[in-house]
């Protein structure tokens, strides 16, 4: 079953990507690599690639970087034991919600007239910053990215938290005897101790960034004027909205290549971590 539903499609993708075909007409026409050439001439492809990359970079900084900071704080001695569990659960919760629900939620939060964000800006005297967050091509992609940070930082934090808990206690005790500060402990013990997990988190965040689809589909559909298009929606649009199934397949091959490479890196490190 895995062979049929997981592997076969990858092969078929390569095959379809060499044709021009539409979903509703039975004929297909061999065009060789023309679909790939078209992709590289398509402005939307570069916008998509840029957006995916932007999403990946910001997510790594925020989710992995900031997530790590939170994890270290939660494992440190500044927060009471009961509060730790509470904070962890609260931060983690958004990652459980479906992307559709969160996307719709933020669709309202970003609404220019009744949205929460503009309301708060008004309230704290920054009314001039008010804009149509998803309708303004300068802000739309950042608005979507911000939502994902809200949703997933807690998730990455929990992954790192579990890794920190696996670090042997003796290491910290030894450091305390030497009089190390919390900051020094974090730099010299915690971060090296969870290095592999940090790499894994970085990679899954990058892969997640290149799989991006639902957020965009629910919130902006790639608009305004393609400014929030990503590879996933670009592919979907080509294959299913504009009947260019072959073109869509060619884009899918590119998505496949990117995510596959990133996954290889992940597996390598995950294995190293397990042994």
């Amino acid at each position: 079953m895995i062979l049929v539903f997981v592997y076969l499609p990858i092969v078929q993708n390569f095959y379809f990507s060499l044709f021009k075909m539409s979903s509703y007409s039975p004929t297909k026409q061999f065009v060789g690599l023309a679909n790939y050439r078209m992709i590289f001439e398509d402005d939307v492809f570069y916008i998509s690639l840029k957006n995916n990359t932007l999403y990946a970079v910001i997510s790594v900084i925020c989710q992995v970087g900031f997530g790590m900071l939170l994890a270290i704080i939660l494992e440190g001695s500044f927060i009471g034991r009961k509060l730790k569990v509470f904070f962890r659960n609260v931060y983690f919760m958004p990652s459980l919600l479906s992307v559709t629900a969160v996307g719709l939620m933020f669709y309202f939060i970003y609404n220019p007239n009744i949205g929460l964000l503009n309301g708060i800006l008004e309230l704290i005297g920054l009314g001039d910053l008010k804009t149509a967050w998803l309708g303004n091509p300068k802000t739309a992609i950042y608005a979507v990215i911000a939502m994902s940070q809200w949703q997933y930082t807690g998730y990455i934090m929990v992954l790192l938290l579990v890794a920190i808990q696996k670090i042997p206690h003796e290491q910290y005790e030894a450091a305390e005897i030497d009089g190390a500060s919390s900051f020094n402990k974090a730099i010299h013990i915690t971060i090296p101790g969870i290095r592999d997990m940090i790499v894994v988190c970085t990679v899954i965040t990058v892969i997640g960034a290149f799989k991006l689809f639902t957020e965009i589909y629910v919130m902006t559909q790639g608009g305004p004027y393609n400014s929030t298009q990503v590879l996933g929606t670009f592919m979907y649009r080509a294959a299913f909205a504009y009947d260019e199934m072959g073109y869509g397949s060619a884009i899918a091959v590119i998505i496949f290549a990117i995510t596959f490479l990133a996954s290889l890196v992940q597996i390598r490190f995950a294995y190293k971590g397990n042994n």
Binding site: N111, P112, N113, A132, W133, G135, N136, G223
Partner: peptide
């Protein structure tokens, strides 16, 4: 009206 590209027709 303001922000036409961010407002749905029905809105």
């Amino acid at each position: 009206s303001q922000f036409p590209n961010a407002i749905k027709h029905a809105e």
